[in-house]
Design a protein around this nucleic acid. Structure first.
Length: 577
DNA sequence: GCCGTTTTCGGCCCGACTGTTTTCAGTCG
């Protein structure tokens, strides 16, 4: 269910897009874009705000406030409807073709009447773009290739895929003579859940050999652009990788710049300008001095400090309030992988895991965990063939194994299945025998909002359910999230002391970061769980931690960052601290 | 269209690269 905020933000963004196509003033376009982001990220429900309340949203002034009020009253924005009548939806879609922006989209529409991606492809085949000002042979070729790329869709990859590729490239380039430093930056450093392209940054006084090594990498399928400072390639799997090489002394400014996000950087640069400075990837400079004197650029910390800000963790750099928090000293102390004392969701080969109980426990101990819960599936997932007897036998096995692992407390848990009506496997008496119960949705993903909400609420209200596992049940790029009234669910979690899981699997990352941040405002607690089905899956925890950080979580918010006795009190039903 | 620790008017982040043009517009990040 889309929130009013999201729908209104989408409309304002569409207004920005349509305005840029019709040649509207660039600053006005940018103002709409900024407002759209602010509306989407605003904690209050805009449906409940009057004009005065709407104006308190950052980057929303009198004009946009009126448009949102228009949306609240009518469900749409009049100016958007008018522009839609003028510009067919297909023309806006043209701008999603790489290398084709608003100007070219408008040109083909006005000159040739082209108003959809397939029409544009046909126009090129027919040679109708020839002679159009600004369109040469190369442009045609680029557009056709862009369309083909879009057809292959799924152009973003999961974070673990990107991380694997980035690690390989960084390792290879780090070996090149003269390469002083090399790291990945961009959305991967910010730990976004999917990655559209990789940004790799290197420091050297002699970029030539690094550029040469980069384009010669075995993963490279084609070179898109090649220069002294920047080279872009596409890998055999279709992912674009941009390499920037900067002088070593510019490292901090360059890393800050190429980490983004773009919106965060715009805000940072605005601060620089207001202070009479100029920030670029080469450093922070005095804007007034004739020689544009360099002030700092060696480290990110210096750059932020000179602008009156503490260093801001990359996972927060989305211009969603982190700069304001940095200014009033309220940046959160983000939870890290080292903060995690335990893991509350894992499987063994008793159900669908691939490793034995002994191997999973040994791997958990190698992670340095203080406590570790085995939570195999319960009988309602019929294919898992769990029975009461097997569960009880596993409990005995865990008690016996405990003696061999004195440094780590083993917990016997289970992952219950939340049925369509919110019921779970096993009755209260049997459930009471487990140390921890995770309950998750594994089927019936397309219920109505009311049904899905009622279902999750009932699970929360079950006193034996401690954690809701992968709460939205989404699979990134493959399955949509449950359509629940999440604010209602968050209220129930806070009320009943039920934690929400952040499942660390790269194709789940569930709860997603935006919902984590919303849930936190209700006082909900979280569990960052591996959901490991094999020893190797513990490696995914960093992605779950990244997601938690993007949701602004501190160790205080995460029950498996707590000492065991505090966790036990929480599981025992005491009201959350 | 928004905004203000110089401003209620006059600014608004900045640079790299491509492609199409003979000095620059468009796109991208």
């Amino acid at each position: 269910m889309a929130r009013a905020n999201d729908e209104a933000a989408e409309l304002v963004q569409e207004l920005a897009d349509l305005l840029s196509i019709t040649g509207g003033e660039a600053f006005k376009v940018r103002a709409y874009e900024k407002a759209a982001r602010a509306i989407a990220g605003h904690p209050e429900d805009i449906a409940a705000l009057d004009l005065e309340g709407l104006r308190r949203i950052p980057n929303v002034g009198a004009a946009i406030a009126k448009k949102i009020a228009d949306y609240n009253a009518t469900g749409t924005i009049r100016q958007v409807e008018e522009l839609r009548a003028e510009i067919p939806a297909g023309v806006r879609a043209l701008t999603s073709i790489p290398t084709l922006g608003p100007k070219k989209a408008m040109a083909v529409y006005e000159e040739l009447g082209v108003s959809s991606v397939p029409e544009l492809a046909r126009a090129i085949e027919d040679g109708r773009l020839r002679g159009l000002r600004g369109f040469g042979a190369k442009t045609e070729e680029n557009i056709l290739r862009g369309i083909e790329l879009m057809r292959r869709a799924g152009d973003r990859v999961l974070v673990d895929t990107a991380m694997g590729l980035a690690s390989d490239i960084v390792a290879a380039l780090s070996r090149v003579d003269g390469c002083r430093r090399c790291v990945y930056a961009g959305s991967l450093r910010r730990m976004r859940e999917t990655i559209g392209d990789l940004d790799v940054l290197a420091a050297s006084d002699d970029p030539g050999p690094i550029m040469a090594a980069f384009t010669a990498l075995p993963q490279v399928a084609e070179v898109i652009a090649r220069g002294d400072k920047k080279t872009s390639v596409r890998t055999v799997k279709g992912l674009q990788v941009d390499l920037r090489v900067v002088p070593p002394e510019a490292w901090g400014a360059a890393l800050q710049y190429f980490t983004g996000s773009r919106q965060h950087n715009v805000r940072i640069r605005e601060r620089a300008v207001r202070a009479g400075l100029k920030l670029s990837e080469y450093g922070l400079f005095s804007a007034s001095e004739e020689d544009g004197g360099l002030i700092v650029s060696a480290t990110e910390e210096e750059v932020y400090a000179r602008l009156g800000l503490p260093w801001i963790p990359p996972t927060l750099r989305e211009d969603s309030g982190e700069i304001e928090a940095a200014l009033d000293g309220t940046l959160p102390r983000l939870v890290t992988e080292e903060d995690l004392r335990g893991d509350l969701h894992s499987h063994t080969d008793l159900t669908d895991g691939t490793a034995s109980l002994e191997d999973m426990v040994a791997a958990a101990e190698a992670r340095g965990l203080e406590y570790f819960a085995i939570t195999d599936h319960a009988p309602d997932l019929f294919m898992q063939r769990m029975t009461d007897e097997k569960a009880l036998a596993q409990r005995e096995a865990i008690r016996a194994l405990q003696a061999r692992h004195p440094g780590m407390t083993l917990l016997h848990g289970t992952e219950l299945n939340i049925g369509p009506d919110g019921g779970v496997d096993w009755d209260a008496d049997f459930l009471a025998g487990f140390d921890v119960c995770v309950a998750s949705v594994h089927s019936h993903f397309t219920q109505t909002t009311a049904e899905a909400t009622r279902r999750l609420l009932r699970a929360c209200e079950n006193p034996h359910v401690h954690v809701i596992g992968h709460p939205t049940a989404r699979l990134i790029g493959r399955r949509a999230p449950l359509d629940a009234d999440w604010d209602e669910v968050f209220r129930a979690c806070a009320r009943t002391g039920t934690a929400l899981e952040i499942d660390c699997f790269p194709d789940r990352l569930d709860l997603p970061a935006d919902l984590i941040r919303r849930a936190r405002r209700f006082g909900v607690k979280f569990a960052i769980d591996s959901d490991a089905h094999a020893v190797g899956h513990f490696r995914n925890v960093r992605y779950g931690v990244g997601t938690a950080q993007r949701g602004w979580l501190t160790p205080e918010d995460v029950i498996n960052a707590w000492p065991l006795d505090r966790l036990r009190a929480f599981l025992g039903g005491e009201t959350p601290a």
